[in-house]
Design a protein around this nucleic acid. Structure first.
Length: 860
RNA sequence: GCCCGGAUGGCGAAAUUGGCAGACGCAGCGGACUUAAAAUCCGCAGACCGCAAGGUCGUGGGGGUUCAAGUCCCCCUCCGGGCACCA
């Protein structure tokens, strides 16, 4: 349906140009396809230039979408922001790289294959084609020459290549581990992909725990560097940096060995090869004299030794493990009640020789620290709860220095002095920690220790539609790398996707059976594929050199473009994608491929798109289709509304009436510009001279608007107020319509006004801008036209309205010359009639004059 | 529980450095044009009192600093997001 119904031509124009009634209507359905065709025919418009072009570079990147087949409003918002920025930077004369690609591996393609009997590849490529059309319709200016599609062998061969390089460096390893298993996906999930005990893609599907041999990337080797790097990322939102800091979870403390008390008699059986020490991790070694038990995680290796000789204990521990597992699956690990069982064994505190019981407790995590703690109930909430429940002794060993601290257990504070701690009594917590660490190191029963919460990145997936892991299992040679010259290991074409568990690739004999590259004997390919976060960890490097068949990219080209100047995407990727990318960048740096430490200098996280109070999503049934909006109002209006309705970093409430409003505004621009274009054209190339009167007024507003928008593009990014500023400008021009029609403003000024207006609109409404640019008789593409420069002289007001307050309350305003000094302003303020009346008979105690801002009289 | 955000008209929002609160837009109301409607154009519009001139109140709540607070400080409430038995 046509959106903008025909409107009656304004009378002033009807007289002049009756014949062209149709041309007066703003009709995005006509304009937009016309420019799509033209731009498609001229791909160089959006193409990055060679590295030696001599221009400063600007790399603007938006997160690549998963090719589901449909853009959603979140994409529209993300890409509208990025596209406006890219267009602005082009106009500022930068060599802009503005690429787009497809995060094309992943489960939905397999699900679709099951459902429609369409091969994943075909389904994915068809979706890509459809979404590309949507993007083109939106008028997004991408350099399609460097498009990256992660499911194509030309791309994923480099995943494999990187995997092998990392394998050689010891950054890839295999281990049997408890993994998160999503029954729906029938695959393993990374810790980061488990949300509240459920799969991040299937929010109602509980994740199981399974034991599998898995491939891991040793991201923990970079934990400290990833943490330190955050301090320097001042172009990233503090929020994201904080989230990553918490995720990495660095914690400084001490590893301390408690000695396992020797036990004589039958109970010692099975303990023979076990360590005689229990290593605990604590951040509060200063409280160690208050340790009244040692607590082990149920999975701790010593527990297995203890239970081997004690079937009753074993039953209790097994039950505990089972309960923990259930709780983990239900996602409320923190909610289960603390409980434990005594092992009947004792440990000896290395500092004072005190004998404390060893318990197994369900609140001790096997995979954090050493899986064992010393329990100090007087100074830890959890230990206190536990000790109270089981009547374990509670010994206070820290006395608060601050008398305001309530005298109640447990005492959880760090400001205090030691008591009941033998030779260390009287030391501050901080000093005591240092001293106790020294003693431990000297006595070889402990040392300072930094622990991270971050775990290694499990990348194995038992799925078909992902990058095959380039490893061959040979019975004689063990794990053998696929030689580089045999890459890529290509996914087989013919495959039957079923819902059976295990890797689909393992059921394809042609894929699995292979000769060992080492000994030539029959061997088996690895059938796990890689997590799709591998694909998105480095795709933005590939953009710079997407066709390279010999290397993932040319280092020199990457050196030119990196780091990314501006990365834009949703905050939901704050941890997963953005931490993996930072890791990958460092790995590539250490492989000598790149020189930058961080992928992106600046990161911008846009807010969510909300409708009727909830995030737009299929499950909520509140989805607005971009196609529908574009069909009804045009791409320009849709995009501009996405920028106008809220600042980009905040959530955006989608209201269709608002899109209609923006569309009305664009119609107004259209009418105004087409009406005065004939006059403006005659003023092309002529100087505006020294404008006065209405000309000056309008040019002043114009130059103020240019200044405002230019400033916003430089970092503040309040595009909502940029659009508002353009609206104000248009309102002001339109308010002068009668005078303009009467010819009060000379042609060169009309030209300057309309030309600049169109330039200001170009980043936000490229179709309309291009059309009007042509209408104004301008040559060349508006895309490469220089961004207008604000003339500060013209922008300056020559008279200001200064509010005058009495005791902080507004009474009146006075007009003064713009440069007026404090004395002149004060005089003008005091001379005002209303001020005279209000101050009559009273004393003006004080006069505050802020030149250019206001006057406040303090009156008694 | 801890760590981030946020709260301003009927609605989306603005106020860039402490200086006229509500720009811009939506919805609404009045008018012009029209046989009529739509579209368009012009105007009104925070709340309360008042015929008006004008006055009082007003940025989630309470306190404070200041000539002046949406903005700074302290305390609290609610909403959103992240983390959560991390020793």
């Amino acid at each position: 349906m046509s959106s903008i119904s025909a409107f009656r031509v304004p009378s002033v124009y009807t007289r002049r140009d009756m014949a062209d009634e149709n041309e007066l209507r703003y009709d995005p359905a006509a304009i937009e396809p016309k420019w799509q065709q033209r731009w498609a025919a001229e791909p160089a418009l959006y193409a990055a230039e060679p590295v030696d072009c001599g221009k400063p570079k600007y790399y603007v990147l938006e997160m690549l979408p998963y090719p589901s087949g449909q853009l959603h409003m979140g994409h529209v918002r993300n890409y509208s922001i990025g596209d406006s920025l890219a267009r602005h930077m082009w106009m500022r004369g930068y060599n802009v790289l503005h690429p787009m690609g497809w995060d094309a591996f992943g489960l939905p393609a397999e699900n679709a294959a099951l459902k429609n009997n369409t091969p994943p590849r075909q389904w994915t490529l068809a979706n890509i084609a459809a979404m590309k059309i949507q993007m083109d319709r939106l008028g997004l200016g991408y350099d399609w020459a460097c498009e990256v599609t992660t499911c194509l062998p030309e791309y994923y061969r480099w995943n494999q290549w990187f995997f092998l390089r990392m394998y050689e460096k010891g950054l890839v390893y295999r281990k049997k581990s408890k993994v998160n298993w999503c029954p729906e996906c029938a695959t393993v999930l990374a810790n980061e992909q488990v949300v509240d005990g459920c799969c991040w893609r299937h929010e109602t599907t509980q994740v199981d725990q399974r034991d599998l041999v898995q491939w891991f990337f040793r991201i923990t080797a970079y934990a400290q560097e990833l943490l330190d790097g955050l301090d320097k990322l001042d172009g990233w939102p503090e929020k994201v940096r904080t989230m990553q800091r918490n995720w990495i979870g660095r914690s400084e403390g001490t590893d301390v060995d408690f000695f396992l008390e020797e036990v004589q008699g039958p109970g010692t059986k099975g303990l023979g090869t076990q360590p005689t020490r229990i290593r605990v991790f604590t951040t509060r070694v200063d409280t160690i004299f208050g340790a009244t038990s040692v607590q082990l995680a149920p999975q701790h290796e010593l527990v297995a030794a203890f239970t081997a000789a004690d079937s009753k204990l074993k039953a209790q521990v097994d039950e505990m493990i089972d309960q923990q597992k259930k709780a983990r699956e239900a996602g409320d690990l923190g909610a289960i009640e603390k409980h434990g069982v005594p092992t009947g064994r004792f440990a000896v505190n290395p500092y004072n020789g005190e004998r404390v019981p060893i318990w197994v407790a369900n609140y001790i995590l096997a995979d954090y620290g050493t899986g064992a703690i010393m329990s100090v109930p007087a100074h830890d909430e959890r230990d206190f709860e536990f000790a109270t429940k089981y009547g374990l002794p509670i010994t206070q060993v820290i006395k608060p220095t601050d008398p305001a601290v309530p005298q109640e257990l447990p005492f959880c504070f760090e400001e205090g002095v030691l008591v009941n701690s033998g030779a260390y009594d009287g030391l501050s917590c901080e000093e005591a920690q240092k001293r106790l660490q020294e003693i431990a190191e000297r006595g070889a029963f402990g040392e300072p220790k930094v622990t991270f919460r971050l775990k290694d990145w499990g990348v194995s997936r038992q799925r078909f539609w992902g990058t095959p892991i380039p490893i061959i299992h040979c019975e004689s040679c063990g794990l053998v790398q696929v030689p580089d010259d045999q890459l890529p290991v290509v996914l087989p074409d013919q495959i039957e996707i079923t819902q059976q568990g295990g890797s689909p690739l393992s059921r394809v004999p042609e894929f699995v059976n292979v000769a060992c590259p080492n000994c030539g004997r029959p061997a088996r390919r690895e059938t796990d594929t890689m997590d799709t976060f591998v694909d998105s960890s480095w795709y933005f490097y590939r953009y710079t050199d997407a066709k390279n068949a010999n290397a993932p990219f040319d280092s020199e080209i990457v050196k030119y473009w990196f780091p990314i100047d501006q990365y834009i995407g949703g905050v939901e990727h704050a941890i997963l994608h953005l931490i993996y990318s930072r890791f990958w960048t460092r790995v590539m740096r250490d492989l000598g491929l790149i020189v930058n430490d961080e992928p992106a200098r600046r990161l911008f996280t846009q807010g969510m798109v909300i409708k009727d109070g909830a995030k737009m999503s299929k499950s909520k049934g509140n989805v607005v289709s971009p196609d529908e909006m574009v069909g009804r109002y045009g791409a320009d209006a849709t995009r501009m509304y996405a920028l106008f309705a809220a600042p980009p970093d905040r959530d955006l409430d989608w209201q269709e009436d608002g899109v209609a409003g923006v569309s009305r505004f664009l119609s107004r621009v259209w009418r105004l510009a087409t009406k005065y274009a004939p006059v403006a054209r005659t003023g092309r190339g002529q100087s505006v001279g020294v404008p006065t009167g209405l000309s000056l007024k309008l040019l002043r507003k114009l130059h103020q608007t240019i200044a405002k928008i230019t400033l916003d593009f430089e970092g503040r990014w309040h595009f909502n107020t940029c659009v508002a500023a353009i609206m104000e400008l248009v309102n002001e021009i339109q308010a002068a319509d009668a005078q303009l029609a009467a010819g009060e403003v000379p042609a060169p000024v009309m030209h300057e006004l309309l030309r600049s207006l169109v330039l200001l609109l170009a980043p936000f409404a490229p179709y309309l801008a291009a059309e009007l640019w042509e209408e104004l008789g301008e040559e060349g593409s508006i895309l490469r036209a220089p961004w207008p420069v604000s003339d500060p002289e013209l922008a300056k007001e020559d008279e200001l309205e200064i509010p005058v307050q009495i005791n902080g309350k507004l009474v009146t305003v006075v007009r003064v010359a713009a440069g007026a000094d404090a004395r002149a302003i004060e005089a003008a303020a005091l001379a005002g009639e209303k001020i005279q009346m209000r101050t009559a008979g009273k004393t003006v105690v004080k006069v505050i004059v802020v030149p250019g801002k206001l006057v406040n009289l303090v009156v008694k």
